[in-house]
Structure formats: C-alpha cells, structure tokens
Design a protein around this nucleic acid. Structure first.
Lengths: 244, 244
DNA sequence: TCAAAAGTGTTGTCCTTACACCCATGA
DNA sequence: TCATGGGTGTAAGGACAACACTTTTGA
C-alpha cells in the first residue's frame, strides 16, 4: 500500500481486482469432521460443491465480511463469539476464470451444526463429511486442505479444541475433537492429565455430570478456560510434518 | 470467489480494491535484528518510514509480486532461494486514506544485508534496527510486530533459523539468531545438543572451521540441512503467550 | 453380570535444565 | 597468562508413553 504507483492515482487504470472471502467452516457431527459447503447454481463449476464465501463490501474488512457470510450461511443469530481465524490469501491470477479474484480464506470452528440455508447463488447448502466431497470448485480443495492442516497444528499449540465443543463438555468429548481432526487415537489417561495440568485450558463445572450416550460412568463437565496457548504443546502422536 | 454477486458481473460496479503486498524483511546486522524500510517521499506519511511493498500486477500472484519487490528493493540478483512466507492480509477499510487497499503481508529473512536502493516512490531505503524506527506509516507498526511474533514462533517449530545465516555458519551464529529474535539468552551446551540431535537441521562441513571475531577457539562450520520442522519443538525459555 | 465409558496409579524412558569443566585462539 | 568463545560431561527434575487397574452406569 502507498508505494510505487505505476500510473498515479487513477483508480480505474487497471483491470480491477475483486476481493472475496472464503470460509472453511468445520464442525464435528456424529463423530466425524464435517465442512460447510454450498452447491453452485451457476457456471463456472455449476453443480460442484464449493466453500461458502462472498465479496468484501466497500465498507468492510475481510474479517467483517467473513463474519457476515458466516451468519448468513449458517443462520446463526449470534456469531460474535465464534472462533474465526484468517488462514491465508489466495491470489493466483487464474484461480477464477471470469476475472481477477483475490480471496482471503478463513477457518471457523463450530460446536454443533445448525442446518444451513442455501444463499442466493447456491443451489444447496449443507454439512458434508470432510473426506467425501471432492473435488470442489476453483482451488477450494487446496484451501480446505490448508485449513485442515492449520487447525490440526493449532490443536497442538493452542486451546482451540474447545471451540468445537458446546459450552459444557466432557473430557471425552474434548479428546474426540483431537482424535477426529488428527485422525489418530489418543491414550485417555494421558490426555486427561495433560489437559488438567494446563492451567486455564478447562475449568470444572462443580457437581455437574453428563451421561454420555447412556452407557458408562457419567463424566464430569468442564467449561473452556481463559488460556489460549498450550505450554508445552500437545504434540500429535504421528511425528509428521507441519507446514505453517 | 464466485459466490453471491450482488450486481452480476459488472466489474466496475463497485469502488475498486487495490491489492498490494507489504514486506517485512528481517536480517541480523551487527548482532541486532534489523528491518528493511523505505522513507516515503510523498503524502500521506511523507517523511515517515514504511515497509517496502507495491501493487500486485494483473498477471501476478501476491507471492510473485512479493518476490519481485524484494528483488527490486534489496538489489539482490537471485532471490529465488530466499525464504519468503505469507504472514496475513490486512484489509481494514481505512488503512490507507486515499482509497481501498487490501494488502497481503509477507515476511522474508535474509542472511546478510546488501545495501538497498531507494525505489521510485521512496526518498531513502535502508536497514534500521528493529526497535528504533517507530512509528511507521499506515498500519505498518502492527504488520511488523505481527511479523516479529510470527518469526519468533517459527523459530520454535521449524528449522527456519538457518535462513538468517549465510551458507556456512557456526552453531554460535545460529544460536545468536535465536537470542536476537527472542531477546533472551540460551544455554550454549543445551542449544548445541538440541540442534545436533535434530536430524536434518544442520549438517557439518567436514574439516572446516572459522575464527569467530578473532577471539576464542575456532568453531566448526555447518550448512543448513533438509529438515523443515523441529520435532519436538525448541521452546522459548520465557513461557510467554503466542498469538497465532 | 456384562459392556462401555470415566477415572486413578505406576513405571520406565526421553527431554530439558542447570551447571561444572576443558580446549583453542588472540592479545 | 588472561579473556573469549567453542565444545564435552553429568546429574536432577519434568514430561510423556504404555499399561494395569478401579468405578459407575445401562442393558
């Protein structure tokens, strides 16, 4: 911004850039990772699934636009508290065949999954299992993969996992978040100790317990704590590469 | 991209967005962290220091534009191998008083510091000590702070530190990178063991040694290895918050 | 009484830390 | 011979992995 300006201040000297947001909205449904997708109603990629998103309006920041789109697509009344995080920006010149589109991608994590409504441009909208619905329109496969990788890394380093859980949750549910996103099983005793040993990760709800699935011993309930970072980190069992 | 399009395909229906890149180019000079800055020649912020950057051209991705700007600003002939990483995108509507500018910010790390040339729009360009030159123009203070934080976190998790070093370096120099970016002292024996115990972090240059500053025992030389991630991470001594 | 899920205990291994100490070089 | 920086050794403490085991519920 404000640097070398090839042709002075003529705002229309160049082919304009469109700026959009794309949202990788993740949730856990019936024990599996799901992603919010819309089915495109028009070309290009008519009939393909795509990430929800839309244009940044003149008075908005990308973050504001993302939150507005999230509210519109999920039908959630209050998205102010939801975890929304910028992923990265995709700007390859040919990523949209119609014109030059630069897209700021976000990840959002939801505790449970209200049914979405289809927007103006979309034929359908819904939660689809993470593994299934490829290929997506445009470069959305890559964006979604980047989002998954990013969330996986964030689980190692931060207390983000609680964003997938409702206000009160059991440690088993929290562990299930990790196992679902990472695709690996964790040792329950060790996970439990690690979480409880991290100050501010979770705080107990006194006296409360929940019967989980009707089977087994009732589990104590916890709320998300105030801490944001995990020190030391909670590393994935499979020592596989991280990008970031 | 390709989602709800309020007014069809009229590319000029809206006030256009300008898309730029901003570069936080960091290096270590005489033992201190330095950042590449340009002094603005025109309003707004004439006479203020700012991060180098410029417009993304119609045929470029943001990454390509960033690499081009880096080459132009530093005068380096070959920037293909240099470490360049997308930081995040800044899109607040009022961040440039002239028009709507969305900027994709990058971090770049350089081993040594060739003197930069001032560009067309800039009065001067140069390496300034990281702590000194505030406030910068626009929201560049925040971008620079985010870049610093990001690099600090990357040093914990990846083998990125070698990007600050020349092709052959001593372990003392590598340790100095950590100490400079983090602002903390590290225990030399432990640092040494940690680095050497990580396969692919560094590889020894057989038989080579360098007299460091003319004083002390000559140090063995190492080259950057092929590994990219640190497993397990090399945590900062001061357990202070990370953002991400 | 059994299956299922929560929760506790224990042990060995690895990593980290905080040191003490020796080595090679220039002044 | 001293200051300076490189390099090795070591013992204590913490974190983690693996596993056995107990508890509490519904069927």
């Amino acid at each position: 911004m404000g640097h070398t300006q090839p042709h002075g201040y003529d705002k229309y000297a160049y082919e304009p850039f469109a700026v959009t947001v794309d949202l990788a909205v993740l949730t856990i449904r019936s024990g599996a990772l799901h992603v919010l997708l819309v089915e495109r109603g028009q070309d290009p990629y008519a009939g393909h699934w795509a990430l929800p998103g839309g244009f940044v309006e003149p008075s908005e920041s990308a973050e504001t636009a993302a939150r507005r789109e999230l509210a519109e697509e999920t039908g959630l009344a209050d998205v102010t508290g939801l975890h929304l995080e910028q992923l990265r920006t995709y700007s390859e010149p040919d990523r949209d065949p119609r014109m030059r589109v630069v897209s700021v991608a976000f990840t959002a994590l939801l505790p449970d999954a209200p049914e979405p409504h289809a927007g103006s441009d979309a034929a359908r909208a819904g939660w689809l299992a993470y593994d299934k619905p490829r290929p997506l329109a445009f470069d959305h496969d890559r964006i979604l993969a980047d989002a998954h990788e990013h969330v996986g890394t964030q689980l190692e380093l931060t207390c983000l996992a609680t964003a997938f859980c409702p206000a009160e949750f059991t440690l088993g549910e929290l562990q299930h978040v990790y196992e679902t996103v990472w695709g690996t099983a964790l040792d329950r005793p060790n996970f439990r100790r690690k979480v409880l040993a991290t100050p501010g990760f979770v705080e107990p709800v006194p006296g409360a317990a929940r019967l989980t699935g009707g089977r087994g011993k009732p589990a104590a309930l916890y709320r998300a704590g105030t801490a944001t970072t995990l020190q030391p980190p909670l590393l994935r069992p499979n020592p596989e590469g991280r990008s970031a």
